[in-house]
Design a protein around this nucleic acid. Sequence first.
DNA 1: GCTCTACTGTTTATGGCATACGCGATATTG
DNA 2: CAATATCGCGTATGCCATAAACAGTAGAGC
Lengths: 245, 245
Amino acid sequence: MEVPESVEIAWGLRERPGKGPKRTLSLEHIVEAALRVGSADGLAAVSMSKIAAELGVSTMALYRYVSAKDDLLTLITDAVLGPPPTLPEPGDDWRRGIHRWAAAMRAALQRHPWSLRIPITGPGIMPNHVAWLEAGLRCLRGTGLDPGTKMAALLLVNGFVRTEVALLADLQEAFDASQVTDEEMLSDYGQALARLTDAERFPEIHELLEGRVFDMSSGPEDEFDFGMERILDGLAVLVTGESPA
Amino acid sequence: MEVPESVEIAWGLRERPGKGPKRTLSLEHIVEAALRVGSADGLAAVSMSKIAAELGVSTMALYRYVSAKDDLLTLITDAVLGPPPTLPEPGDDWRRGIHRWAAAMRAALQRHPWSLRIPITGPGIMPNHVAWLEAGLRCLRGTGLDPGTKMAALLLVNGFVRTEVALLADLQEAFDASQVTDEEMLSDYGQALARLTDAERFPEIHELLEGRVFDMSSGPEDEFDFGMERILDGLAVLVTGESPA
DNA sequence: GCTCTACTGTTTATGGCATACGCGATATTG
DNA sequence: CAATATCGCGTATGCCATAAACAGTAGAGC
């Protein structure tokens, strides 16, 4: 029944009586500044002082707009997501629609991959989150799935997208930190594995290593599409009157 | 080629010359203490000082065993996972094997759900992580999938399990914090949604709300099995000579 | 216009955190 | 026995979130 303060503010409830001095900031400005700091130096650098400095304002000024840092982080996750595209597009069936939904979410998250390190603290109730839910449900309209299953399906896809972007961001970061090409890095991983594992106790892994799986990077794009197609195939089994692939 | 210090230590490389005074601690003791602190008060409470206090030792003593807190966190993630079960069990096909693999991982992670808040920083190279990879590959032995696809499949399942446990832990935490039953909590979410969204802009969500989806909790067990079956169905499409469901 | 009051941004203070550094104590190696 | 590497510890630095007290500002009611 009760929602946190930041949620009410984000939905535009909570009117401000214009009593005291005019405000120099706004939630939007603060969140934008936080996004700039995060993009530049990662989530660890997103501190109240850095954000305030970015805005040319004292640290404590932010607390006139946000009751705690957690509030601000919640706002950030919603801002990062942004509004969903209008889905499904005219000729799309559910499968194409969900694929678009996932791809759009991936694109949005990749603009601020550092934000995925923000721990989630419950079912999303911020405006953009809810709008994405609505868009996802819209894509599943013709499937005949019952409401609970629809929710579960969207949760599954959402989790996949977040995991995939986070993983890719980690690799990218490690790559940027080192001076090697990304093929070399994957190959490094293979070499480390080879050094640490012996063929007797880890036969399957050694088979992998001999297959040079880690030498040629298959590309994150492929990785994403692979998982996506598996999940869609799995969902297709549920949708009446269709069979996968 | 080079692996971090903690990795080498965990694999039992890195011999210690017995020169100075005898050590009063060990990595195992430290990690155990950290797990106790985390289980009691969550990841936020897992600080070097708290761990040291738990061990009756000064904060800086820990740095004789670990080069930085990140090292310790890496050790924690490996300890939480623990060694995998021996898989697949005798009569299991790949599908049953992977299901067991996922269920075992879920069980392990649920013993320390707070640890899922530790950000991952690359492909796992710690002993238990690698052992789980080996076990997963073993389950996929008869599938005829090429090595890269096997890896991608395990990554997909692994991501799903982690996401699911993390999500469930969040809900559980919110539930513990409030004084309501979990049905009431889900219903609260529904009520909040109903209050914040209007039926014109969010028709699908309102349809959900009318269907009372959030009133009867379907149970996390069902949620997990749902996602798992979808992924397995999706993988089954790839495995030659089989068709899902 | 004047006062009251709610609201503004700021300064200062508190307690927690990771960790760099230097200390005396200790136990093995020569 | 002497040299030396390693031990656990105390102290210090600089960051963090945020509580509390402050002086200035602008609308509300007279």
